[in-house]
Design a protein around this nucleic acid. Sequence first.
DNA 1: CGATTGTTTGAGGAATATCAATATGTGTGG
DNA 2: CCACACATATTGATATTCCTCAAACAATCG
Lengths: 244, 244
Amino acid sequence: MVATARRIQQACSHCSVAHLCLPYSLDPVEISRLESQISFDRSVTAGDQLFAQGDQLKALYAISKGSFKTAVVDANGLEQIMGFYFPGDLLGLDALGEQTHQCTATAIENAAVCRLPFHQLEGLLTQLPSLRSRLMRLMGQALTDDEQQLLAMGQKNSEGRLATLLLNFSRRRAMRNLDSTTVYLNMKRADLANYLGMRVETISRVLGHLQSQGILDRKRKEVKILDLAALHTRAGSTAWVADD
Amino acid sequence: MVATARRIQQACSHCSVAHLCLPYSLDPVEISRLESQISFDRSVTAGDQLFAQGDQLKALYAISKGSFKTAVVDANGLEQIMGFYFPGDLLGLDALGEQTHQCTATAIENAAVCRLPFHQLEGLLTQLPSLRSRLMRLMGQALTDDEQQLLAMGQKNSEGRLATLLLNFSRRRAMRNLDSTTVYLNMKRADLANYLGMRVETISRVLGHLQSQGILDRKRKEVKILDLAALHTRAGSTAWVADD
DNA sequence: CGATTGTTTGAGGAATATCAATATGTGTGG
DNA sequence: CCACACATATTGATATTCCTCAAACAATCG
């Protein structure tokens, strides 16, 4: 019984985040061809790496449960957290160019992923034009996401960047039909700080500030958004010109 | 005579930056098929837009002469310069996902571009797998470039970011077999400042500082790199911890 | 429950933004 | 070709954000 139930769940067609994931816009036949190549729901322990910067591309991974961070290290040893990823997100896209992973993906908490061997995926690419265009679209989105983050880093102050991240997480929860008034900052403050280009102390202070203004309410890693409009205002504020 | 000479130059196979551009890694037959779709060396006046954010994707553009900047504007009206582009660079890649341009491309100086109608290009994509993989690689590079810039924005101080940009421009000149000890900052200070997430005054001061240290020598927009090693050191310096 | 790791709070300082003034460059009409 | 007007770049003085360092507090794990 349990085994049967699991088998049923282990298919894109029954996945609650398929609309965010690779299958989106594929027809049922195409999806079943895709499914035949996937190994579903492989569990990943918190702290484990899915792949590391420099690794040869062997597979793409779709998150089915939990969350991940990606990071790059440059020649000088500087590390930058590049993003946080949730169920339905695809990991490994940045390896499609050079066939080599350009970042390291690490599980933030216990997680599970669906593994898409690249060999088989590449075969499907020529046979399924819609899969190719889907992959291109996902790469384009990754590009756009990076550019949004660049805009935040260049044009917004600490409060604006943090508010932007909270709204981003909120929106992504909404896309997963989860309560978008609550977000979970499960990653370490240090990772969040690195991602946002600020110090952990500043994160604390800004969160405290937003809470004291009645915009947020937090308990532990859980952050409740009380005043969405105000948060949007803060997120849109340009750098170095606080409107208080 | 002149016309003949121009005709000969108007082909990827005779282009001095073909190794950076789309044809790279294509064989002669494939290149000639590509060439047949291109309209070469269309001139663009300084300040003109090649395409604007929101425009439908009609073509990709390869720069044959001059330089361009790209910029995005977000919902709050904040503008971010996303990059600067030189001969051999391809413009419009970020439209491949949504079939809509995600940024605006503007000529910094009088320039010329080769135009690749997307319709025809898309047709070639299915026929020439090497072209598809080339395009994917270029998208991957765009992604990596954005990530390098994100790292600079998050981890480096003003001097580090500016030094990083100078080295970036220098390296790109080297790839074009140009003198890599000289770079040209042809864009306005305001664009440079926006791109680097700082103010024009800070650019002036940092450039002045680097010059007073004997690392740079500038006259007008031309910047000569006198001490490459020192510039690398500055570029690698982390934010907020200057090593003087 | 102690040790270790991660988070928050406080005081002071450094980097860089802002504002103001000057200098330099660029285009235009006479 | 010059002179004027306007745009752009530099320099100086001050203000502000956010980092740094230090310490207390909280959570996690054996």
